[in-house]
Amino acid sequence: MALGVSERGSSRSGLGEWVVQRLTAVYILIYIIVALVVLSFSPVTNHAGWLSLSSGLIFQISTLMFIFSILAHAWLGLKSVFLDYVHSWRVRFVLQTLLATLLLGSAVWALLVVGTWR
């Protein structure tokens, strides 16, 4: 049917995704504000300053969470765009696989980078 009404799909992920997208957005915003405030009160002007900042465990964890929030937010947001505009599930599958590879790769990369901070 070209314009019939589809049955409800089998996925029950709508609400969870909606909530996660909002929570990650809030965390990203809070991190940016806190980072701006901290950096404006004690600016990092040289390499030693950066080393002392990046060696802190709280900084490392909050930054990793920030990066993962962006990746999760990007995953949900772009998936939503694909759901809106890409109607062939095959094309959508390819696009989502490419996106997932890119984002998971970024996550691993972020872990490797933060892992070198001492």
């Binding site: 589809s6 409800r8 799909g9 996925s11 029950r12 992920s13 709508g14 609400l15 939503s80 759901l83």
Partner: peptide, 14 residues
Amino acid sequence: LDELEDPFRLFRCH
């Protein structure tokens, strides 16, 4: 609510 919890029926609203 069961009928609405679906990626399309409700959550296409942006």
